[in-house]
């Protein structure tokens, strides 16, 4: 699980081009959206593609993403339980 979390952090920083954020600065329970990392609706769409491409999880409604992408912790748990690859 820790490896998965680390992988997610690295992918998020790289994929979303978060130049000013270091992987080590992201806490497992930090809010990814809003006041936390400051991600927005476009990032949510990027993360949905990441779920599909890296873990074989398909979301059809972007609204589903809101709960899943709450934090690294929540996201990792969801991926762990639902991944197909």
């Amino acid at each position: 699980m820790d490896d998965l979390k680390q992988e997610l952090k690295e992918n998020i920083v790289e994929q979303l081009n978060l130049e000013d954020i270091a992987v080590e600065d992201i806490d497992d329970n930090d809010m990814l959206f809003g006041d936390g990392l400051g991600l927005d609706s476009i990032d949510a769409l990027e993360l949905i593609v990441m779920l599909d491409k890296n873990y074989g999880i398909k979301l059809t409604d972007p609204k589903e993403g809101r709960a899943i992408f709450e934090s690294i912790d929540v996201m990792a748990k969801y991926i762990f339980e639902n991944r197909t690859k």
């Binding site: 994929q15 476009i42 769409l45 990027e46 593609v49 599909d52 491409k53």
Partner: peptide, 9 residues
């Protein structure tokens, strides 16, 4: 497949 929106936007 696996296209992301940022560059389109």
């Amino acid at each position: 497949q696996f296209l992301t929106p940022t560059s389109f936007i």
